[in-house]
Computed example of a mutant assay.
Amino acid sequence: MHRRYASHPNEVKQFDTERLRTEFQISDLFRPNQLELVLTHEDRFIIGGAYPVTEDVTLVTDLKELGVSFFLERRELGIINIGSTGSILVDGNEYVLNSKDCLYVGMGSKEVIFKSDDPANPAKFYLNSAPAHVKFPTTHTTLAEADSSALGSIQNSNDRTIHRFIHEKGIQSAQLVMGMTQLKEGNMWNTMPAHVHPRRMEAYMYFDLPEESVVIHLMGEPKETRHLMMRNEQAVISPSWSIHSGVGTSNYTFIWGMAGDNKAYADMDQVAMKELQ
């Protein structure tokens, strides 16, 4: 498991592009037959990928980093499959996930194993994990069952659908909030006008992005913005003080995950367009 430290906004103002990538961008989440995990000290959030191709992948890591005897002893886990159909075994119970399905795994689950149905068309499981103080049941939700709503407009190039999976009115959790946003063809902007939510950090993972395309991810304080060039299946850490927005050279999909003081999806501080610098 790789480690990223929390950063003060005054410090980040001095970062060059390489340092921004080192601290906030996660480039290699999906390696065949491997588990990749990144622990950020922003709310002790973990971002990861499990990519079972010809072998199953088990959720294991260096437990000294977490101070526990098994991964989910004091944690909860959200999983969204961005690949083809696969399954997840949680303490012997099997959950089949089609593309863009979500599985929440509650605190106390001891064994989590990721499988693909077809090695030629493997599943790709994107993971978010947060510390938990209470156990909620393991729950599977399909894309069709998600709490979905349309936002934006073609006039503003941000016509998109937001799918909420793990949130205060959906799958219950201790603090993890997780969902997915799909931009319609011909739309490129996400989360603009921008906002911050000082009570929660967030992580994005961009996918369904053509190989030759990029998303220019905006971050930083509203009056001290910075940017990162994001490519397909790359993730980015967004501290609670930072905006998190972006524009692509084509439409794309991204998964958002949050942790912090509350689970209220709408709890955000809006930033007026005229305030951005």
Rank of each mutant, 00 (worst) to 15 (best):
L127D: 02
Q234M: 14
H167M: 10
H197A: 11
M268V: 14
L218E: 04
E23S: 05
D101E: 11
R21C: 12
G49N: 01
I237L: 07
S153Y: 09
K169I: 05
M219Q: 04
H140Q: 11
D147W: 08
H197G: 11
M230Y: 02
R231T: 13
N156Q: 14
G83I: 08
N33P: 02
F30Q: 00
S7R: 08
K274F: 14
P9N: 03
F45K: 01
H163F: 12
R19I: 14
V271S: 07
L77Q: 04
V53H: 00
V196N: 03
E224R: 05
I243H: 03
S116W: 02
C102S: 11
V177T: 13
V57L: 02
H197N: 13
I154K: 13
P131A: 10
A203N: 09
H195V: 04
D101W: 06
K110R: 15
I237W: 02
V38E: 00
P222M: 06
T138D: 01
M219N: 03
S116R: 06
M268K: 13
A123F: 08
G48A: 04
M180N: 02
A132Q: 12
I113R: 07
M107E: 00
A6G: 07
F71M: 06
N262T: 15
H244I: 03
V177W: 02
E18Q: 11
L97P: 11
A203P: 01
R3W: 14
Y5N: 09
M188R: 13
E224A: 09
Q175R: 12
I26E: 00
K100A: 09
A130K: 05
T181C: 04
E18Y: 04
Q155H: 15
R199E: 12
T61C: 13
P193F: 05
G92K: 08
S153M: 12
N262C: 15
T40Q: 00
L63W: 07
I79H: 04
N93Q: 14
P131D: 09
D269C: 05
A120T: 14
V38L: 03
Y95I: 08
N121S: 15
P198L: 15
P122V: 04
W256H: 01
H167I: 08
G152D: 15
D208L: 00
L66D: 04
M107Q: 08
L276P: 05
M107G: 00
A174L: 06
L218F: 10
I80R: 08
A132F: 11
